[in-house]
Amino acid sequence: MNSRMDSFHFRFEALGSGCEVVIGSGSKKNAQSIAGCAIEEVSRIECKYSRYRTDSLVSRINAAAGHDWVECDEETLSLFQYADTLYESSGGLFDITAGVLRHAWDFGNAVVPGQDVLSRQCSLINWQSVERQGNSVRLPVAGMEFDFGGFGKEYAADRAAALVYRKGVRNGYVNLAGDIRVLGPKLDETPWLIGIQDPRHKSRTIASIPLFTGALATSGDYERYFEVDGHRYCHIIHPRSGYPVTYWRSVTVVAPLAITAGSCSTIAMLKEADGLAFLEDSGMGYLAVDHLGEMYCRNTSSGF
């Protein structure tokens, strides 16, 4: 749209992976300062909600499990509210207290945990038992944990994009390790082409999805996994069985917001065979690859 404008790419590390913000602007200095704000926002969210940081709010709440109430701010309360909807919408499959299973599944050492370990951890998963009163929250049983990892990255992508948008940027996107929120098309008004990784070949793509605006997120069994006896154990774990899901290799969803796209793709993964019907009814565009490599897709190019 603007011949004197350029697209500026800024790469950074956050949330344990490679991230990128792309800004169409008439001045590099301006783009730099805006990108700085976006990166700052992502790192703010990481500091506040990462369970890997002992000083984060989430770690404080987790440490107080079975004991104290922790007072939360408005942002956190609204995220709990969102988590509640996630739980309800997924029939209890998307549960932000399911993070305790990661203590059982050690992806570094590739060991399948025993049934007793899994059932002990599963007994600590219960969003409905979480006590919320006014501005305070309490995990009722020691050992219970919150994990905002299921939507924190997408939330950060949306927040950062909204911030950049408010600074007047209308072309570009925010990409946090594949979870993308688009601000607006390329400077020549053509869509951004988002390559979707082949879940079995890291360097190949299976599709390229054009996006003018909106968001895209992918959940897959290839991000963190190990294989034992030809069986793949990925990091998306069913909260009731305690075992990783196996039906889908990857699910990509195109939605207006990254958080919606990410939540829908994760729910579809967790629903296994029923995930397709869920995606079909969700009204969102999707591209799913099942355990046999079969692809299913709908309406991913609508671009909202």
């Binding site: 309800e88 919408s89 909204a162 408010r166 829908c264 019907a277």
Partner: peptide, 25 residues
């Protein structure tokens, strides 16, 4: 009935996301 239900659920999700602060443009 099931499909209608999940349509409602997906809409609920999208609506809940909108309620989060400062995600919308």
């Amino acid at each position: 009935v099931a499909t209608t239900k999940s349509t409602v659920l997906a809409t609920a999700l999208a609506t809940a996301a909108i309620a989060l602060p400062s995600l919308q443009f």
